[in-house]
Design a protein around this nucleic acid. Structure first.
Lengths: 274, 274
DNA sequence: GTGGGAATGGAATGAAAATTCCATAAGCAC
DNA sequence: GTGCTTATGGAATTTTCATTCCATTCCCAC
């Protein structure tokens, strides 16, 4: 470790700042590496030294020297940084969950920190995984509907009620199917209507049934669920998979609500434009 | 290669389609893999078998079997698919943002970005402003209550229903006061009970009335509201001011829900410890 | 219960990748 | 040009990781 070495970058912003400062002072081959990495940051996360070296047109050993020159112990350490940024380093809540179970004397503010992080992570990854086209289609379908039906039971009931509130506030006709009194409300849904069905594992059968029945009745369906293996994902509909993070046995709803708000307001503005 | 094996997926859409179709028919461990992969697709691109297996809580060999069951020769081949897909999507990120800024402000993904930002900000400032001592007191009060009453109407109704769900799941006696049928339910609250009252501007009079009546009946009250000038803030109670960010006429609920989860789980663990 | 077949987990193996080392080449001062 | 320092490329080494194999367990049918 010679004294000219700068300290290790902690994130990619650090890293690129360092490149900016020291980039021009590097020897030829290392400069090639710097330029290649700057131009293809994402590729670093998913490639081997040999591949990157080939891309930068230098031998692998030169690339290794580059990594060390940037303050890392080697390529692996540098790659770790890019991988974390790239995958957002989804925290390992499974292991925290056991901590939650064992250490029963958890101070509430630690819990708050956990839930806050779960919420942030969920929202962050929502924005990266949502298909803009699906969003557009969902908004179009809902804006064109005569009546919007809403169903979400148990853990997703808050989302359904939020949508009901938002639509009411914008004076868009919407019906919340809550299952009160165990009445079947499937017959309310007809052609020209749309249904937003929300369900996470364990999937409430009533929600699935209502969604299936809506499809049979030629209503448009928008599905919000968690996984492609969900029974709701089998339905012919505009589908959203929301990457909500579990903390212990509880699931953050932040991302789902964010999506719900987006749909509601999107529909509102589109209707007004018509 | 047995005949039941499906042909190799060519892209991630293929892959998720296969998961959707065959996911439920898989044996337990392989299903865990399927779900983990579905929930964390980006992580697959940048992780090792061992890491993913740990994430899915299966041994590495099970994860290998999963890859082969999905039609790949092994993990490396499957990872290749994810790497290709995901390193292609990345460069769009910067251009996507600028497109968002330039393009019409009504595009749904622009809305999504706004709401996501609002949610993040709200949660962030919640963790900064919450008083740990108030949290501790609230949890103590609620954990000691015979029955926990919940009230939150209109825009805060989703929070109240979320709490109701959480308490039910943990088998903690809780009553959701929803005002259905316009029946007064204030008389249900008595000494030894606790009430969580949630209200944001414009404050629903029923919520305030119920909270005041609970105080008169010597019940403990926990208040979640937005401003110190709120009528709920005048009540003798453990008080939380949640700094939710408004987007247009709509308010993110992310921070409020995060606080609600914290209270619920905090009470749950504390009760179990008693 | 009991037998058979599928599923599982752990340890052994082999391949691939990162990292180091060293001989050679290039640049530079004198 | 000569000697010295720094840079370079390829090959050897070591570490990490994917993959396979097999003994054990689990589950279901009878």
């Amino acid at each position: 470790m010679n004294p000219s070495e700068t300290s290790k970058p902690r994130n990619s912003a650090d890293f690129f700042e360092m490149l900016r400062l020291r980039g021009n002072a590097l020897p030829k081959r290392l400069k090639q590496c710097a330029e290649y990495v700057a131009a293809n940051p994402a590729v670093v996360a998913v490639s081997t030294v040999a591949e990157l070296a080939a891309g930068a047109q230098v031998p692998p050993s030169a690339f290794m020297r580059f990594c060390q020159e940037m303050g890392f112990s080697g390529f692996s350490e540098m790659q770790k940084l890019f991988r974390e940024e790239y995958s957002q380093n989804w925290p390992d809540y499974a292991s925290r969950l056991s901590k939650l179970r064992n250490g029963d004397a958890q101070a509430p503010q630690f819990l708050l920190a956990e839930f806050a992080e779960a919420g942030r992570t969920s929202i962050e990854s929502l924005t990266r995984t949502i298909d803009p086209d699906a969003l557009r289609r969902a908004v179009a379908v809902l804006a064109g509907a005569r009546t919007i039906h809403l169903v979400g039971l148990r853990r997703t009931f808050p989302v359904a009620t939020y949508l009901a509130y938002a639509f009411e506030k914008m004076q868009i006709p919407a019906i919340l199917h809550s299952g009160t009194g165990n009445l079947s409300s499937a017959h309310l849904i007809g052609q020209g209507d749309a249904l937003i069905a929300i369900s996470f594992a364990p999937y409430t059968p009533d929600t699935i049934a209502l969604a299936e029945s809506a499809v049979k009745r030629n209503a448009d369906v928008v599905v919000i669920t968690d996984l492609p293996t969900s029974p709701l994902a089998r339905i012919d509909a505009v589908r959203f998979m929301v990457p909500e993070v579990d903390v212990g046995a509880f699931r953050s709803l932040s991302a789902t609500l964010t999506l719900a708000m987006t749909l509601a307001v999107g529909v509102g503005t589109q209707r007004r434009a018509l």
